[in-house]
Amino acid sequence: MRKYIEIAKIYIKAQLIWRADVVLNMVFTVTKILFAYLLWGAIFGSKAEVAGFTFHSMLSYYIISAFLNQLDMSSLISNEISTRIRNGTFSKYMILPVSIEKYFVAMESGVVTFYLAFDFIAAIVWIFLFQIKFVFTTNLATIACAILIILLGLLFMAQLNYYLGLLTLKYQEIGTFLMIKNNIVAFVTGSIVPLVLLPGAFVSIMKLFPFYYVTYLPSMLLIGRFQNERIIGLIVIFAWCVILQIVIQVTWGKYRRKYDGVGI
């Protein structure tokens, strides 16, 4: 375990070098909240509620989901694996006496821990600046479940990107897979539009898939809605993590022999 903590620590140290990245990430979070403020301000107009959301609960949802979205840095994993397999430097990880998957999860944990603080500050600043009446549940069991779902969601995204990165061993180029994944994630996680605004049948289907639980459900739980879904949410996202782990093991076992280390 200590080796993975040290891996996380070294990536925190590496993040601290690039100050511009920190500022831009905060600005990006802020821009999303600003955009949401203007968009939903126009949609709500004189209406008090839209689909059960007040203006302030909608903005609270947005701030939480933007915060969670910014925390998901797992695309770093697929990009790193893909680039290194293609240029022949993936051997850097293969020769280390560590689990490569755990190495990448630790890497993401380090990066996420670093951004967590800055994204949190950005969210707080905007709550005060726009004088948003922040809606947040006081139910401790719900908060605990939401945190667990968030952690499992981040783990799932890390696993997914690790899996997609490994596909480079077979397909050489995974740009299309990543594009599809990014579009699905942007839409289905509810970071563009809250899923509650979409047709009920569509949302029911989405509940079978993991993306519903990555950002959307925990955001809703934290603003005090969908309390009855918290346990089933935990079970579903956990089950998806287990399923994906099995798929990863099979894929790695099958494709790792295809790595030829050709490149540089």
Partner: peptide, 22 residues
């Protein structure tokens, strides 16, 4: 032509990491 070092960090940082890894 392939490096194990972290270019943004110091050698001391990389050595500390390898100490834990091994």
């Amino acid at each position: 032509q392939k490096s194990q070092l972290f270019f943004e960090l110091t050698v001391e940082d990389t050595l500390r990491l390898f100490k834990e890894i091994y």
